[in-house]
């Protein structure tokens, strides 16, 4: 998909995120909105997958390590044909395949259930190791939050991924500078992320995670790198990107918009409310 198409698609994804969280009455819009360009680009132009055959041997693996941003993943999966867009209305409701956090047993296309932070990253590295010993060319991608980096196992995984030279593994940090209790810096500083991972033996690039050109180049760089190291994309982003009152705050980390806020958000996203 070209840049123009991607731009439109990202806007669509943002609308679906806000709509589905609003319909659900709860959920996590902030970190979903910050990752839109990162994940839309990945699914449109890089990740190999077949919604009709989600367990295909030739697929690349994507793992949403920050599982609370399920509305982001579900919105993109709906567009890609894993399930009807209509089904997004069932998010977080009793009996739905669209659980509050991704559930691998309920929804085809989810590689592993996530929601407990830090775990998806390690699982992704395990998949990468397995592919590697089988000499397969499939790639593994994981999306993490910046607050998530505070979990200790993240650094165990970082160490092991470099130890095992998992150059088929690309981790993306959605560095939106906020977590639940406030800014990452005030809660428990994680910077400098790039230098930390570099010292752990990773190949790293730092980009603006809303600049589609930079996002595209970062994934290209992963696919062409020959360093033999695992690859990290540190993406500077805005939490809540696209909805003015959700931007740059922890307030909409885990809260649905009110009816008035919803109306306002949809107007900002270029669509009149339902």
């Amino acid at each position: 998909m070209d840049r123009n198409g991607l731009e439109k698609q990202c806007l669509e994804v943002r609308r679906l995120i806000v709509k589905s969280v609003y319909e659900a009455g709860s959920g996590h819009p902030g970190g979903s909105l910050s990752g839109v360009e990162l994940l839309t680009t990945l699914f449109e132009n890089f990740l190999k997958f077949d919604p009709k055959n989600p367990k295909s041997d030739s697929r690349d693996y994507f793992i949403l390590s920050k599982g609370h941003c399920a509305p982001l993943l579900y919105s993109i999966m709906a567009f890609k044909g894993y399930f009807p867009v209509e089904e997004l209305k069932t998010l977080r409701k009793l009996g739905s395949r669209l659980q509050g956090h991704p559930d691998a047993l309920k929804l085809p296309g989810i590689e592993v259930s996530t929601g407990s932070l830090g775990q998806g990253f390690g699982v992704a590295a395990g998949i990468a190791l397995s592919l590697k010993i089988d000499k397969k060319v499939n790639k593994v991608y994981a999306l993490l939050g910046d607050g998530e980096l505070q979990e200790g196992t993240v650094w165990e995984t970082a160490m092991a991924a470099s130890h095992f030279k998992l150059d088929n593994f690309c981790a993306v940090i959605d560095s939106n500078k906020f977590q639940i209790d406030g800014s990452v810096e005030t809660v428990m500083g994680v910077e400098p992320i790039k230098q930390k991972f570099e010292s752990f033996g990773w190949e790293c690039v730092q980009i603006n995670g809303h600049d589609l050109k930079q996002v595209d180049e970062a994934y290209q760089a992963f696919l062409s790198h020959k360093s033999g190291k695992p690859f990290l994309i540190v993406a500077d982003t805005l939490k809540g990107k696209g909805v003015s009152f959700m931007e740059n705050t922890e307030k909409f980390h885990g809260k649905a918009p009110s009816p008035e806020e919803f109306e306002k958000a949809m107007i900002e996203l270029g669509e009149k409310a339902l």
């Binding site: 709860s26 959920g27 977080r92 659980q99 509050g100 956090h101 559930d103 259930s113 996530t114 929601g115």
Partner: peptide, 8 residues
């Protein structure tokens, strides 16, 4: 806990 689901 409700809507957050089984992981929580």
């Amino acid at each position: 806990v409700g809507e957050d689901g089984g992981s929580h």
